[in-house]
């Protein structure tokens, strides 16, 4: 799932300071689930903006709304009328949502209110962990379920490097980072498949990843083409 984090309020205030009618638009899917940009956060952010502006003696009209999925044209079309009443949309969806909005409402200014951080999952309530970088050519079968691209800081396919110590990655600073290849090793050991550690992986095809430019999937079997 997409994980995000609300932008620092100062940044939000700064970016919206020249507008007097603001629509804060949350998204009720991924970013709601990671407690960053759902309806509740939208209301909270709107209230913060309103208080800030009051304090600055620059009253503002601000409204909080949220949409099922901000990355779907049909869902955001619902907001057409409302959009006309506001100068700017502060979107609390991920970057995908912001851009979908811009695509649909090219004449509108849509600002991101959220930093889209990674693809991950909740380890427990309030803790999220990145574990996939959408490389487009999944190798989880080889490493038995632990992603070397994400969990290894250097995205090495033939790890670990010499910087792995006591299960920690050498780049660990104040925050300890687990060595992805240590995790893979432990997992392979538990499964009795340690011989994989001896195998040499050939270079990965990174063109399926972002390195090949923005990706697009076209599926003719599901595309609707009228008049054929």
């Amino acid at each position: 799932m997409i994980i995000g984090e609300r932008k620092p309020l100062e940044e939000v205030f700064d970016r919206t300071s020249s507008f007097n009618k603001i629509l804060v638009l949350g998204c009720e899917t991924c970013v709601a689930v990671c407690l960053a940009g759902g309806k509740k956060e939208a209301e909270e952010t709107a209230e913060a903006i309103s208080l800030h502006r009051k304090k600055e003696n620059q009253p503002v009209e601000v409204k909080a709304e949220s949409v099922q999925r901000q990355c779907e044209f049909e869902f955001i079309d619902e907001f057409k009328d409302l959009m006309n009443d506001y100068d700017v949309v502060l979107s609390l969806a991920c970057g995908v949502g912001v851009q979908t909005m811009v695509d649909r409402y090219p004449e509108k200014i849509v600002l991101p209110g959220l930093n889209t951080t990674f693809l991950g999952y909740p380890l427990e309530q309030g803790v999220w962990m990145e574990n996939c970088q959408a490389c487009g050519d999944c190798v989880l079968d080889k490493t038995h379920g632990i992603c070397p691209i994400t969990r290894c800081t250097k995205s090495m396919l033939n790890g670990p490097c010499g910087g792995s110590s006591e299960g920690k990655c050498e780049i660990s600073g104040d925050i300890e980072i687990e060595c992805g290849w240590h995790l893979i090793h432990e997992r392979l050991k538990a499964l009795g498949k340690l011989d994989y550690m001896e195998e040499v992986e050939p270079p990965k095809n990174w063109s399926t990843s972002f390195h090949g430019g923005p990706r697009k999937i076209v599926r003719e079997d599901v595309k609707i083409v009228r008049g054929e």
Binding site: E28, T29, A32, V33, L35, G38, K39, Q125
Partner: peptide, 12 residues
């Protein structure tokens, strides 16, 4: 209908 199935309520 409004639920995002985030499990927050279940967990908290």
């Amino acid at each position: 209908i409004k639920c995002a199935y985030c499990l927050t309520c279940y967990r908290s």
